[in-house]
Design a protein around this nucleic acid. Structure first.
Lengths: 144, 144
DNA sequence: TGAATTTAGTTGACTTGGAAAGTGTTTTCA
DNA sequence: TGAAAACACTTTCCAAGTCAACTAAATTCA
């Protein structure tokens, strides 16, 4: 632990460093498909979850509602998803993957999966498990 | 390890989740002082490093050069740092903390340090050490 | 019931981030 | 030496994120 920096600043930075490397690598590869990382994450969620609202999504992918709205706008105009007003509550919006969206997922996963094994191997399954544990615990921290 | 998501997407997301919580908390608190997290990080670096160039900084804080340039522009107009053309190479720029910048650091640290102990305690020193190890190892990954 | 409040999501103005091209300095090497 | 290449940083232009205000639907409770 470096002592000359404040703890929060240090952890924030270390996490950012690690995150950025993985994020950047993923970004670069997804870009070939014209897909943002967050969009990809949403696509993966919508694949199994059929009645997520914007609010649910915003919470799960940790985006502010306006940011999510605009991302979804882009996804809609790309023909990947479409909005459906929820039955139970007409204020809510459900996102649904289009045919194209589903096709796109398979295309991308085919390419990306290949390198996944490589990354998994590099990190090592033990280390990955530790990482998972710690991230979960830190994720549960309630930092005001 | 969740299996329905690609590994990279999953790790990227987990790291983002953890990072975002700490980053957001720090952001909120630094905002009271009108300081961005990255600016704070730079201020802490400049406190000890006196001949960092823009390039060095960009590498250490993981910012793209144009982004750093603009952040520094803001810091200069806030009177926190000033640019000094390097002696050895007139293309390079050294950043120097101003009196105000130094004063600002002490002000902020006084406030922030208090909560640092609390955060450190919550994470736990053992967990923090593990976190540090893993972040370092993952940080060293060469992801193309 | 119905006026006031809360909630879900969107819009708009503004700020910040990034890729690529541009400027001026230093280095390379024929 | 001096033309070409490499380098350090900045500028420009466009994409994406944030805050605060807004719209419309649902809920509360006097």
């Amino acid at each position: 632990m470096q002592s000359k920096y404040t703890v929060q600043s240090y952890i924030s930075y270390s996490l950012a460093t690690a995150h950025r490397k993985i994020h950047t690598s993923l970004t670069r590869r997804l870009k070939e498909f014209g897909v943002q990382v967050e969009a990809w994450r949403i696509m993966e969620i919508l694949e199994t979850e059929t009645d997520f609202t914007m609010g649910d999504l915003a919470e799960v992918v940790l985006m502010n509602p306006p940011t999510l709205t605009k991302l979804v706008d882009r996804m809609v105009s790309d023909g990947i998803v479409h909005r459906r007003i929820a039955n139970r509550d007409h204020r809510q919006v459900n996102l649904v993957l289009t045919e194209l969206g589903l096709k796109r997922i398979h295309q991308i996963r085919e390419q990306v999966q290949i390198e996944d094994d490589e990354i998994f191997r590099r990190i090592g399954s033990e280390k990955a498990k530790m990482l998972h544990t710690i991230l979960t615990e830190i994720g549960d921290l309630d930092l005001q």
